[in-house]
Amino acid sequence: MLNDVTFGQYYPTKSFVHRLDPRVKLLFLIAYIVMLFVANSFYGLALCGLILIIATIAARVPVWSVLRSVKGVIFILAFTSLLNIFFHGGANLLWEWRFIHIYLEGIIFAVFLTFRLFFLVMGSALLTLTTTPVNLTDGLESLLFPLTLIKIPVHVLALIMSIALRFIPTLMDETNRIIAAQKARGASFDTGNIFKRVKAIIPVLIPLLISAFRRAEELGDAMDVRCYSSGKKRTKYKKLKFSGRDIVAALFAAIMIAGVILFNIYGYRIYPQIYQYLVIS
């Protein structure tokens, strides 16, 4: 089960998207999310989908790795969709039973919401698939730089994040190893009621915690020895630089934002007859 966590797993190739400045990618993602929430019709949503498709192709990552990222939110999504279908008001009543009224608008809204959330998660996954954790933290650090003015140690936070990301695969391997070892001693993790299952986690959790603390201590020493907190002013090896590529991406984002806004305003003119089914209220 733990192998399914693709989130935060970098997929190494050298594509257009991989080589974009992480700041541009982060801002692009933010713009994309804003677009998702601004779009009020399926036209705008389709445009966002188009962005996702173009980005996936340009990133040259396997489609399944992007699609798989939605696995984690399916449950939440199914739940909210059901709520929306049952309780969303509207004008076109399709079915009713006692206090449950299902309106066409509810179904449209649920579908819309599903796509919106899918696109959101896949977009974020695309960012982590194409950006090394280090680049990502560099990007964040650089974007958050203004916060140093109010005495927030941004580079320390960035380092913490980088280390956390660095240790995710290591600790995941370790977890799998401990699970296998306890299974070999007869532990069972997938039977019994919820209390039994929680209790069954203890023989995995404790060794894992102990190991994490040991690693933290050793890492601290290793960092000290490598002159961390030497008191000197740190430099940065990787300097982020904008290039032509980034301008292309920014232009693309600008056009798409404009597209979403235009669809929002003038979308009803395309197929006025069915527009009521394409817009959410």
């Binding site: 090394t132 954790p133 280090v134 980088s162 690693r215 050793e218 290793a222 990787k238």
Partner: peptide, 10 residues
Amino acid sequence: NQMVASIVED
């Protein structure tokens, strides 16, 4: 336990 970054050169 001695590596801070996920890419060798970093």
